[in-house]
């Protein structure tokens, strides 16, 4: 059984048919890069995987939890899926440590001691153990994004979703965030990322998915299909971005 199993998934925004039948199996330890032009449906697909977007048709199962429409199921699903956003979305009134501690405290009802230990562990993992008491606006963009990764990891998710997590960063801050993601991949975390970092997708990912007009247009080993695209659309895309 795959960790994430998506079959026949359709999504509409009003009359706009955004996802036109997606089938995707994600195995434990996969590092998947979703690429494609803006409007191709890659972010929407990512957001359906933790229920931020509802699905109109098809099925989504994460680690045995199927996506239905009740909130209880959604929350069970979300405890298995961590998400990191383009705009970090840290809670501005909480310190880095409190940002990481919040969900384990209020969702998992762990003790203060336990959540503090988790927060320290996760901030250490992203190289920010000295920023426990810093507020988000006292941190650089790269540091904020690393806190956001630590915050998602604190729920011990089975799979992490990354939605263009380096797109809002100054160029010199991109690498510190990618290094953390690379380390997670090396530790065996299952990752699905929408990204424009082609080199990173090729070097770290084990599967690349090219989305086009709401469908998976081409997919496979990134080293192979980026070097030798089988469709003119992917060839055009790689020529434009690489």
């Amino acid at each position: 059984m795959s960790l994430v199993s998506i079959s026949g998934l359709h999504k509409h925004f009003g009359t706009n048919h955004v996802l036109k039948g997606i089938d995707l199996q994600v195995e434990q330890g996969d590092v998947i890069a979703l690429i494609g032009r803006s409007g191709s449906g890659k972010s929407t697909l990512l957001r359906t995987i933790n229920g931020l977007e509802s699905i109109d048709e098809g099925e989504l199962v994460v680690d045995g939890t199927a996506l239905h429409h009740g909130e209880g199921d959604l929350r069970a699903l979300r405890q298995k899926v961590g998400m990191v956003f383009q705009q970090f979305n840290l809670f501005p009134h909480l310190t880095a440590g409190q940002n990481v501690m919040l969900a384990p405290t209020v969702v998992k009802k762990l003790s203060k001691k336990e959540t503090e230990d988790i927060a320290k562990e996760m901030l250490l993992k992203v190289g920010l153990s000295d920023k426990f008491h810093a507020f988000p606006d006292q941190l650089s963009g790269g540091q904020q994004q690393r806190v956001a990764i630590a915050r998602a990891l604190a729920m011990r998710p089975k799979v992490m979703l990354c939605d263009e997590i380096t797109s809002a960063l100054d160029p010199e801050l991109v690498n510190e965030v990618l290094a953390v993601v690379q380390q997670l991949a090396a530790e065996g975390m299952t990752l699905i990322m929408v990204t424009h970092e082609m080199r990173f997708a090729r070097d770290v990912g084990n599967k690349l998915i090219f989305m086009h007009h709401g469908r998976i247009h081409e997919s496979g080993d990134p080293r192979i299909i980026l070097a030798d695209p089988q469709t003119p659309e992917l060839a055009n895309f790689t020529r434009a971005v690489m």
Binding site: G51, R78, M83, F91
Partner: peptide, 26 residues
């Protein structure tokens, strides 16, 4: 900001928890 709600949702907070811990103070 909408992103605050999405971040809270992605961390599996319910609506009441989101209001109390994420929305109210800011």
């Amino acid at each position: 900001p909408h992103g605050q709600m999405e971040a809270a949702a992605s961390l599996a907070l319910n609506r009441a928890q989101t209001f109390v811990y994420v929305v109210l103070r800011p």
